[in-house]
């Protein structure tokens, strides 16, 4: 029975999605700069837990999100009564979005967050 599976697989498309490119480019940074198209990732389901979105104007500075965050992502900035997110630590549990009384925090579909610098612009939300 397994032999039938193997022979069937010979003529089928591989299950692996070749993301971002089929073969490893010689230089990754040169490839990214060239702007050539990449193989799209597997689509995310609805209500996926991805990168946080922060609506700064809605935030009331109640500090509730910091009380439930398991990874200490959220830093309170007392001068402005707003918060700052260090997303490199985020574990995508989404408790801050649940507890926020002003609905200032949301989760998006974005999940490509790899970076060399954990304090880069992409990973610090203000």
């Amino acid at each position: 029975m397994i032999l039938a599976q193997i022979i069937e697989q010979l003529f089928k498309k591989p299950a692996t999605n070749k993301f971002p490119v089929k073969y490893m480019p010689k230089s990754v940074s040169a490839f990214l700069k060239s702007g050539r198209p990449i193989v799209p990732p597997v689509p995310t389901p609805p209500r996926f837990r991805g990168k946080l979105i922060y609506h700064r104007e809605k935030c009331v500075g109640c500090e509730q999100c910091g009380r439930v965050c398991p990874a200490n992502v959220i830093q309170f900035v007392p001068q402005e009564k707003k918060v700052r997110f260090y997303l490199a630590r985020c574990t995508f549990c989404g408790q801050c979005t649940d507890i926020c009384p002003a609905d200032a925090i949301e989760m998006s579909n974005e999940f490509l967050l790899a970076d060399y610098n954990k304090y880069s612009k992409n990973l610090v939300l203000e």
Binding site: A15, P45, R47, F48, R49, T91, F92, G94, Q95, M107
Partner: peptide, 18 residues
């Protein structure tokens, strides 16, 4: 992979479903 996809659909995360 099938069951991982179902878990992702139900919970929003593939592993560590929260």
């Amino acid at each position: 992979e099938q069951v991982m996809d179902i878990l992702e659909l139900l919970t929003g995360n593939r592993v560590n479903y929260a």
